[in-house]
């Protein structure tokens, strides 16, 4: 099962190496890892998605806790709102451009760049939405695509603090 871990870490050089190295070393696979600074500039927040059984996830949790630079860990799998973000660069022709624009509007993908042969879409959504949209545009030529990992936050009043 996939788990989403929110991890607060010291905002210092080398911390990402320590965290990602631990996963590799102990044989855990990271599905995605996103890191960015929080409202407190001394703290970064990582959103880590891992696939594993409960035992694996418990071990990951404990091993993360052992890293001195890791401040707090929360498994928010059940309570999270999560989003990913993607750019999709699609090759178009005068003949199919309108069709692509209409489809983009229907799926709430934003058109952020247009040139005679290219449309770039900006897409935000959960994992399902992103894969559905990608499937939808697969019949055109996707020249390039880039996407982030998952960022997630807990619903409601609870918040992850140092």
């Amino acid at each position: 099962m996939k788990h989403i871990l929110s991890v607060l870490v010291e905002n210092r050089a080398g911390v990402l190496h320590k965290v990602s190295g631990m996963f590799g070393r102990r044989g855990y696979n990271i599905e995605s890892l996103v890191v960015g600074v929080t409202q407190d500039p001394s703290v970064s927040r990582m959103t880590i998605v891992i696939d594993g059984n409960d035992n694996n996830v418990e071990q990951v949790n404990k091993q993360l806790h052992k890293l001195i630079d890791v401040i707090k860990i929360n498994d928010i799998t059940k309570t999270a709102i999560s989003r990913q973000f993607a750019f999709i660069k699609i090759r178009c022709t005068p003949a199919n451009r309108n069709e692509i624009v209409v489809l983009a509007n229907i799926v709430e993908a934003k058109i952020v760049d247009v040139s005679p042969e290219i449309i770039i879409l900006e897409v935000t959504g959960d994992e399902d939405k992103l894969s559905n949209i990608k499937a939808l545009f697969d019949k055109y030529t996707i020249a390039e695509m880039v996407q982030t990992g998952v960022v997630a936050i807990e619903k409601g009043t609870s918040s992850l603090k140092v």
Partner: peptide
């Protein structure tokens, strides 16, 4: 050496 010893130190520092 900080990168090299990360897997088997409890913690390590590069003094900047």
């Amino acid at each position: 050496i900080v990168g090299a010893t990360t897997p088997f130190t409890k913690h390590n520092y590069l003094v900047k």
